[in-house]
Design a protein around this nucleic acid. Sequence first.
DNA 1: CCGCAGCCTCCCCT
DNA 2: AAGGGGAGGCTGC
Length: 287
Amino acid sequence: MTFTPWRSLGKKTSFTEHSLAETLDGGQSFRWNQTDTGSLLGVWARNCVELRLHSGRLEWRSPTQAPVSKEELERYLGLDGLHDQACDALPWRSDPLLATAMQRFPGLRLLRQPFGETLFGFLLSAVKSIPQIKEGCERAAASFGEEIVPGVWAMPDWEDLVDISEEELRACKFGYRAKYVWGTARFLSERPGYLAQAEAASYEDARAMLMQLPGVGGKVADCALLFGAGKWEAFPVDTWIAKVMNASYGLAGMSLDQVAHFGRVHFGSHAGLAQQFLFSAARRDAD
DNA sequence: CCGCAGCCTCCCCT
DNA sequence: AAGGGGAGGCTGC
């Protein structure tokens, strides 16, 4: 496929090679891959974009057949003033663990992905590793999504999935998550506007709405809200975060829900951003 | 309200 | 070399 020329995204970026890769391919999103030239190629909604860091600037290009606007890209990457403000407002001054994690991933930020496809990815995430979730998303896109440019597929919308049988979903190797996807597609088809309503609702209301969906518990709901709806007070607690929090804040014996509540209280209205730094640091330590 | 097994599939380990 | 344990959870008992 042919691409537009590389374009620069404004002034110098706070991304490093490290934090760019961690932001796009570190578990928030499941549709970015490193290319053999060191750039990153990703898909969201009907958009396909290649990103690279060049002379301290963030550069991008998209297929000429499927151009992406600069505004859409900036929105997706969260390139506005809110990120720096949110970082500064985190309690790193009084929390050495957080301060260390933030120093280790300068430039790491939260994406603003399409809500529906973020939910889809995390619906597949139970007891799976990131590469496995990515494969599942890729199979779903190639099987049920629209081909944007040759060889690149958009994720299917939830409406596109309502006629897909559980057997067809199992053919994508979703395993027992196939019935979650099937049930969620059915649930949403019977309630037009449900996801849009959740996206517009307060964090607490949105979380309760998502948890009505089959296969969506507190952790999956928080991930969808944090990475796909801009609700930064969401504090997803997975096994990594639970382990770090238990060890570092004396939370041994707490349930995951209690740890999530502690996180929201301790880190404040941008708790999810703190979670992302801690998550990346914890995962890195394990390597 | 809490704790626990089971669930698809793949991977890593012995 | 075959088989058990566990992986970025949720559900139902």
